[in-house]
């Protein structure tokens, strides 16, 4: 089993996820796209682990999952609390970074 198709698929998923982050306005969907990108990375890790014949890549993927879980928890909490005050889950509405 070669590795190139896996890596290519991983790249493709990553790019799709990135486009989604940039295009979608619903914060939850944006979040899902971020997850998509993380998973694409995980696929690469696992593939490279196999290619190199050691388990370090899998460990990295494992850590990514842990961190992603933590991130999702906090991120969704933030979305909920923002929604509670602004009645909107659109990322464009939170444009307070602008002067």
């Amino acid at each position: 089993m070669t590795v190139e198709p896996f890596i290519g698929l991983s790249a493709l998923l990553f790019a799709i996820g990135a486009i989604g982050v940039l295009v979608r306005r619903n914060a939850i969907v944006v979040f899902m796209c971020v997850e998509l990108m993380l998973n694409a990375c995980n696929l690469s890790f696992v593939t490279f682990a196999r290619a190199h014949g050691n388990l370090d890549g899998q460990v990295a993927a494992f850590f990514v999952m842990v961190v992603a879980a933590a991130e999702v928890v906090v991120g969704l909490a933030i979305i909920v609390s923002i929604f509670r005050t602004r009645r909107s889950a659109s990322v464009d509405d939170a444009s307070l970074l602008k002067l």
């Binding site: 890596i7 790249a11 493709l12 990553f14 790019a15 799709i16 990135a18 940039l22 290619a51």
Partner: peptide, 22 residues
């Protein structure tokens, strides 16, 4: 940007791996 990024990754990085799969 997404297409460029994906394109670069697919065409260059994915092909950059040389050597036998262990």
């Amino acid at each position: 940007l997404g297409l460029l990024f994906g394109g670069v990754l697919v065409t260059v990085v994915a092909q950059a791996f040389v050597g036998p799969v262990v």
